[in-house]
Amino acid sequence: MPRYEFRCRACGDTFEVNRPMARAAEPAPCPLGHDDTVKLLSTVAVTGRGGPGGSTPRGGGCCGGGCGC
C-alpha cells in the first residue's frame, strides 16, 4: 500500500499515512489533531539489481551500445 507524506501547517509536524491510491487526494488530519495539512511531493528512486538474474542494463552510449558510440 502506498505511503503518503503530509505536513501540518499549524504545528509543522511531518507525518506519513498508508492508504490506497484511490484515496491519495483525500486530506489527512495531523496526529496532534490539526486539520490544516498539505500532502508533500515525494521522490522515488528505483534501481535494478546487479548480478546474475538482475536487471542491470547492458551496453552503453546513447542507444544502448548498438551504434558503438
Rank of each mutant, 00 (worst) to 15 (best):
T14W: 02
C67F: 14
Y4W: 05
D36T: 08
Y4N: 00
G50Q: 09
R23T: 07
R3A: 08
T37Y: 07
V44G: 07
P52F: 08
F15S: 04
R19Y: 02
P29Y: 02
G59M: 11
R3T: 11
R23C: 05
C8H: 00
C30K: 02
P20G: 09
T43I: 12
T56P: 00
R7I: 03
L32N: 06
P29Q: 07
R23G: 07
C30V: 06
T14K: 03
A28N: 05
D35L: 15
N18S: 08
G53M: 10
G33E: 13
C67W: 09
S55Q: 11
G33V: 09
G50L: 13
G51Y: 06
C62G: 10
G60Q: 13
F15E: 00
G60F: 11
C67H: 12
K39C: 12
T56I: 09
G50R: 15
K39T: 02
P52G: 05
R9F: 05
P31Q: 04
G65H: 07
P29D: 06
V46N: 06
C69A: 15
R7T: 01
D13L: 08
S42L: 11
R7A: 09
E16I: 00
T56V: 08
G51R: 03
G61I: 10
T47M: 08
T14H: 04
L40F: 02
P57V: 04
M1D: 03
R3Y: 00
C63V: 12
T56W: 06
D36N: 13
P29C: 09
A25F: 11
L40I: 02
K39A: 12
G54S: 13
L32M: 03
G60I: 04
G12V: 01
P27R: 11
M21R: 10
G59Y: 08
A10L: 02
L40G: 01
A22Y: 07
D36L: 08
R7W: 01
C67N: 13
R49Q: 15
P2L: 07
L32F: 03
T14I: 08
G48C: 14
F6P: 01
C30G: 01
G61E: 04
R23H: 10
G64T: 08
T47A: 14
S42A: 06
G53P: 13
H34M: 08
R49E: 14
P57Q: 11
R49C: 09
K39W: 02
A25P: 02
A45P: 00
A10D: 14
T47Y: 10
L40P: 03
A22T: 09
M21S: 10
T43Y: 11
A25I: 05
R7E: 10
N18E: 13
G12E: 01
